[in-house]
């Protein structure tokens, strides 16, 4: 097994917000008056903005990401007595290709550590959309997949077994047709469950790398675990270092990764042991 089982929200409190307030402020997100922050990721043309509108209504405004010519929409909603701020990330196919849009989306999920990341996936083109879903799940373990455009899928005679999908991905999967607001209440409930720690995700982590890559990852993971104990996405960081990702190299140099660790010592050690065991059994 390669999924690491651990309780998120390591601030010794299961229901406390898990987001990184300091980094969010740097990213230009004001969290005053908000309890949780939700990121909205997804491929282009998946109805992501329809979901955004369905969640926020008219409580939204657009601007640019600080210092970038990438549009950012922010909005908010209330659910279950909590106030959620939602940030619409640029629509991307991947988070690996260093385009400006991808960098913005990637950095927000990695450094902002949103309480929940909603990943909008197109039910009619699931395979390509899962490419992004899996990449996001490598970075964060607090996610909900909105399986959107279910109406279109039905029209094309495509059926998606969301329970099998949820089992494989290890996160809640909510079928939606945001255009007609179908599934939006369920989506809100799932976001709430993940944000408050009622639902604990066990996100899918990529396996089956070629052996050469696998041993390289193993070596780096060992070192990273010692330097940054409790880093929630250590394997992904190792992969990015192998790919020569400058932003991650800088994060290692400046010690930024240390800010991302979950400071629950017992938990992290367990995690480390688990990771090492996996590696030995691989």
């Amino acid at each position: 097994m390669t999924t690491s089982v651990k309780i998120p929200a390591g601030h010794n409190c299961a229901t406390c917000p898990a987001h990184n307030l300091g980094n969010l402020t740097k990213l230009g997100i004001n969290m005053e008056n908000w309890d949780y922050v939700v990121a909205l990721a997804g491929n282009p043309n998946t109805g992501k903005s329809t979901i955004f509108n369905a969640l926020t209504g008219l409580r939204q405004h657009t601007g640019n990401w600080p210092g970038k010519t990438v549009t950012r929409a922010e909005g908010g909603f209330e659910f279950g007595g909590h106030r959620y701020k939602i940030v619409d990330l640029p629509g991307t196919y991947s988070l690996l290709s260093t385009s400006l849009d991808e960098e913005v989306a990637r950095n927000f999920i990695l450094f902002g550590q949103p309480d929940v990341t909603i990943i909008v996936a197109d039910a009619t083109r699931l395979e390509r959309n899962l490419n992004l879903v899996l990449q996001v799940l490598e970075i964060t373990d607090r996610a909900v997949v909105a399986l959107n455009l279910m109406d279109e899928a039905r029209r094309h005679g495509i059926t998606v077994d969301e329970r099998s999908l949820a089992r494989d991905l290890g996160v809640p999967v909510i079928p939606t047709a945001a255009r007609s607001r179908q599934g939006v209440p369920e989506l809100l409930q799932a976001v709430n469950d993940v944000a408050t720690g009622e639902y604990v995700c066990k996100p899918h982590r990529i396996k089956n790398e070629p052996p050469a890559l696998k041993s390289a990852i193993r070596a780096l993971v060992e070192q990273l675990e010692i330097a940054f104990p409790g880093l929630p996405n250590v394997r992904w960081v190792a992969l990015r270092l192998l790919d020569g990702d400058q932003r991650i190299i800088e994060a290692v140099k400046r010690g930024e990764l240390g800010d991302l660790t979950r400071d629950d010592p017992g938990q992290t050690n367990g995690d480390l042991v688990l990771q090492l065991q996996e590696v030995q059994h691989a």
Binding site: E127, D168, L169
Partner: peptide, 8 residues
């Protein structure tokens, strides 16, 4: 994963 979940 998609193969397991989707029926065309």
């Amino acid at each position: 994963i998609a193969d397991r979940a989707v029926v065309y």
